[in-house]
Nucleic acid binder design. Sequence first.
DNA 1: CTTGAAACCCGCCTGCA
DNA 2: TGCAGGCGGGTTTCAAG
Lengths: 149, 149
Amino acid sequence: MDDKDLEILKLVQSNARMTAETLGQAIGLSPPAVQKRLKKLRESGVIENEIAVLSPARLGREMTVIVQVMLERENRMYLENFKRKMRNVPAVQQCYYTTGEADFILVVVVNNIKEYEEFTQECFFDESNVNKFTSSIVMDRVKVSLDIL
Amino acid sequence: MDDKDLEILKLVQSNARMTAETLGQAIGLSPPAVQKRLKKLRESGVIENEIAVLSPARLGREMTVIVQVMLERENRMYLENFKRKMRNVPAVQQCYYTTGEADFILVVVVNNIKEYEEFTQECFFDESNVNKFTSSIVMDRVKVSLDIL
DNA sequence: CTTGAAACCCGCCTGCA
DNA sequence: TGCAGGCGGGTTTCAAG
């Protein structure tokens, strides 16, 4: 992990389709050298995976909601149950276990308000440990990225 | 956009490195056919881009904070200023303009608490229109994905 | 760096609606 | 007749020596 690796990461985190040749001339390295570095970065887990980012709008996913969830009881079993549920529900794009007022903060993506209502029914009312939750409707997805460099 | 396209999207949204051949035999299509569909999906913007997902832990980005921001004044110019700022600050991974108590909800990724303090100084105190903000420290990134299918 | 193998891209042709 | 799938070429990219 040196500066060259970091430069490669900075580039591929916003575009994974760059060829080794393009990357190479951007940072001053031969294509095979770049490929070897990429291979190591993937194997070591620095690059976790490579994904296609889809357009929510083009696919009818018009609605994003950020939800703060307060649980009833906070013992370990309930926490794990809730986490497992979140991982398995497709509408939940992101789930964070946090300090502060809320126990969990979610980013939920659905087609419309009806689907959101169904989601809350399934996850927050039925057989659940949720005490309270507050929903914030997203009016503008100002910035959405996973870049960390 | 038919079922085959949707199947392709479902696969590539979690792994963009699948070859056209692999995709083809998963959904019953020849490799060239898959490539043509991918090309169209990219050109039409259904696939916005393809990115490498990096490991925050491996890169020292140990700290994720979810921030709710209430602005002082909500007129258009201040909103746009704030949005522009968020887009330009690298620590801000995500920024949503929302209904509800908070005007904006942010996902911020930093190395440590000191960097977070610097971030708040830069974005919330100096020459800014921020009335109040609350920080929730993330203890567990239970689920982080961009999948929408 | 060089080489062999594999994946991708671009024609053309065919079949079907 | 127009659109989508399949096949073949050449070209680029990838991966091992």
